[in-house]
Amino acid sequence: MTATAQAYVVGRAEEVPLGEGRAFTAGGTPVAVFRLRDGSLRAVAAVCPHAGGPLADGQSDATVVVCPLHLNAYRWEDGSSPTGAPPVAVYPVREEDGALVVET
């Protein structure tokens, strides 16, 4: 999978405020990018695998993001869900010269 990964500039770093998530599209894939409390970035698919909830509206901590609709949680580490939902896709994300770069 990583062999075919593509990097996309999805937006500006300042578009994701500390502690919040924002939705973008990376080459057609909707992704939710979060800035955690420690300032680091995380990206997952924007659409909750449970029932399509908007993950960018979710609350997060250092290990998980929690979907706002039915409060399923997903781990940043591998997208697996400690609450038993199907896993969510996790994407590498980084900041490059003030741009947000997501690999899908």
């Binding site: 405020p17 919040e20 924002r22 057609g28 924007a46 908007p54």
Partner: peptide
């Protein structure tokens, strides 16, 4: 309250 407070979270739907 913060930048993009009211940005849509499901861009493609």
């Amino acid at each position: 309250a913060s930048p993009g407070q009211f940005r849509t979270s499901l861009p493609l739907t």
